[in-house]
Amino acid sequence: MLALNNYLILSAILFSIGTIGVLVRRNAIVIFMCIELMLNAVNLTLISFSHYLGSIDGQVFVFFIMTVAAAEAAVGLALMIAFYKNRESIDVEDVNMLKL
């Protein structure tokens, strides 16, 4: 097994890629995929801690996160479809009717 640090660094990199993706990408579905990437990075962190600490809490937490992420995906995609029906676009540049 690799040392804990390697897992942590990997998940940190994944998390950062996800964050940058959310900030940079324009397609709402891709943004959501990046959010999923962030959540999975967290999952990786939790599992590696759980293994390192010998405590099962982390893995239980991962189950919860996966379930919630699935529910979130369903809801999020439904919202995107509703938006698409009205605006014919998923580009977040078009999400601009409400201004500061």
Binding site: V22, G76, M80
Partner: peptide
């Protein structure tokens, strides 16, 4: 409302 929902979600 669509926009609010989508923005809030993301």
């Amino acid at each position: 409302s669509n926009e609010a929902g989508l923005k809030y979600f993301l």
